[in-house]
């Protein structure tokens, strides 16, 4: 458990870091191959589902963006600043999904965005992916339900 009821309760650890901080190991030492040194990495990371019907989350949103698919992104782990590219996104107008948007970027700060989550759906699912860090790629799984973030910056394009 990393975050419980919105409170940060633990980090991920590998043997090295847990020994240094005298903290129990969590089994997160991972490496890409025999050519690489292990480091602390996520494995299957997921956020538990909530109660809300995803349809209701959308229908109760007067103005927003529905992001169906992300194409990847980049996170500065020291500051929490992130960008994620959208590869399928739509406008939400008066509670309805309307116009599709061209590929663009979402930008923000991780901890700030987490605190701005104001709705969590009941439609949990996991997605496989690849996570890159310090030149090493490992397979990861991510899971979450439909989430609503009350405000976020989205990039425009030249014709938007």
């Amino acid at each position: 458990m990393l975050i419980e009821d919105g409170v940060l309760v633990d980090y991920m650890w590998d043997r090295n870091r847990s020994a240094k901080s005298d903290h129990p190991q969590s089994g997160n030492g991972r490496r890409q191959s025999y050519k690489h040194l292990p480091m602390v990495r996520m494995t299957n990371t997921y956020m538990l589902a909530g109660q809300e019907d995803p349809e209701n989350i959308i229908s109760s949103t007067p103005k927003g963006v529905y992001v169906a698919k992300l194409s990847g992104g980049q996170v500065n782990t020291a500051t929490g600043d992130f960008v994620f590219g959208t590869s399928e996104a739509y406008l939400i107008e008066n509670g309805k999904i309307t116009t599709p948007l061209r590929d663009t970027n979402l930008i923000g700060n991780g901890p700030e965005i987490l605190s701005l989550i104001d709705a969590v759906g009941n439609d949990f699912s996991m997605t496989p992916g690849t996570c890159g860090k310090d030149g090493q790629s490992v397979s990861v799984g991510c899971g979450q339900a439909t989430l609503r973030v009350s405000q976020m910056t989205i990039g425009g394009t030249a014709d938007a």
């Binding site: 980049q74 600043d81 960008v83 590219g85 061209r102 590929d103 970027n105 990039g155 425009g156 394009t157």
Partner: peptide
């Protein structure tokens, strides 16, 4: 800048980065 690999489409030329 950040998010270049997800924010730039080298086929269409669309460019959007942090």
């Amino acid at each position: 800048i950040s998010g270049v690999h997800s924010g730039v489409n080298p086929i269409s030329g669309d460019f959007s980065v942090g």
